[in-house]
């Protein structure tokens, strides 16, 4: 996990934990900021006023049940969806007013690795590099570096449609890193992967973060959030219902409920989303808020 140099003190982080208390504003800007973010679809209010602040260098986890508004929020922050109300800045750029600047600063790997199955891994990375303005020669060099980084050199010249799920995820991650983005958005990067592939992706996320890239990660796997994230927010029904470091969130729940043992992040999640363990126990019982 990142050491988070330059974290700033604000009202939200002050409430969250001892680890940031006393830290004053340094030279790092917020990598992602959202205020009152709302997304309406006809007849549906998918996101209902989300406020977020992610510091540069953090791995920020964004958790929530299916349909809670995670992906919609990420799609607004990455310029893929228009914002109905509110405002957002990513890497210092206004998402609505300057989407091109945001796109230059971010890397995006969305749910279900979005890859062109007819290209080879190398071609895909070279194309992505060209789209970020690199010359053909530079793009070829960058593709080689990234293929080595995600250990896909042997499969580089095979068409993507023949890749396994884990290989596709690693390639998608590599394509999101082609221009060394300031902020990397990963939308459920390990969903559907086997445990070994999941660990590989975690390693990549840590490595990317160690190089200074802020990571905004959505996931349904609480263990993943616990392992990777410096701080996290839980969204339910289109609103942020908890935010803080994993340790702080667990401590808060233990204190509030007067628990004898430290709760897990699962307990925090269930509590935040209005569910209980009993209601999700068993493999056929319905889970509802």
């Amino acid at each position: 996990m990142s050491s988070q140099p330059g974290r700033r003190l604000d009202s939200r982080t002050t409430d969250e934990g001892d680890d940031v208390a006393g830290v004053v504003e340094l030279d790092r800007h917020a990598a992602v900021e959202a205020q009152g973010l709302v997304k309406h679809y006809p007849g549906v209010e998918a996101v209902r006023g989300v406020d977020l602040r992610v510091q540069a260098g953090e791995v920020f986890g964004f958790l929530g049940p299916n349909g809670a508004g995670k992906s919609t929020t990420v799609r607004m922050l990455t310029t893929l969806l228009s914002i109905t109300e509110g405002s957002a800045r990513v890497a210092g750029h206004d998402v609505a007013r300057d989407p091109d600047a945001v796109r230059r600063a971010i890397g995006v790997a969305l749910q279900e690795a979005g890859l062109d199955p007819r290209q080879t891994g190398r071609e895909l990375l070279e194309l992505q590099a060209r789209l970020f303005g690199m010359s053909a020669q530079t793009a070829a060099g960058r593709a080689r570096e990234l293929l080595a980084l995600v250990e896909l050199e042997d499969a580089a010249d095979r068409r993507i449609k023949g890749y396994s799920g884990g290989m596709k995820r690693r390639l998608d991650l590599a394509s999101a890193l082609v221009h060394e983005p300031e902020v990397l958005f990963l939308d459920e990067p390990t969903t559907g992967l086997d445990p070994a592939s999941r660990l590989t992706v975690w390693d990549e996320v840590r490595r990317v973060n160690d190089r200074g890239t802020t990571v905004f990660l959505t996931t349904q796997y609480l263990e993943e959030a616990d392992q990777l994230c410096d701080r996290l927010a839980i969204i339910a029904g289109g609103r942020i219902v908890r935010e803080g470091t994993p340790a702080r969130l667990k401590a808060e729940l233990r204190e509030r409920r007067g628990l004898a043992a430290e709760p897990t992040l699962d307990d925090v999640f269930l509590d935040a989303t209005g569910r209980t363990r009993d209601r999700v126990a068993g493999d056929v019982q319905e889970v509802s808020a």
């Binding site: 796109r103 062109d116 303005g133």
Partner: peptide
């Protein structure tokens, strides 16, 4: 096919 597979969004998220 590209829209359904998600690659279209990848292209839309690039600065072209």
């Amino acid at each position: 096919e590209e829209i359904e597979g998600g690659y279209f969004d990848k292209l839309r998220a690039s600065p072209v």
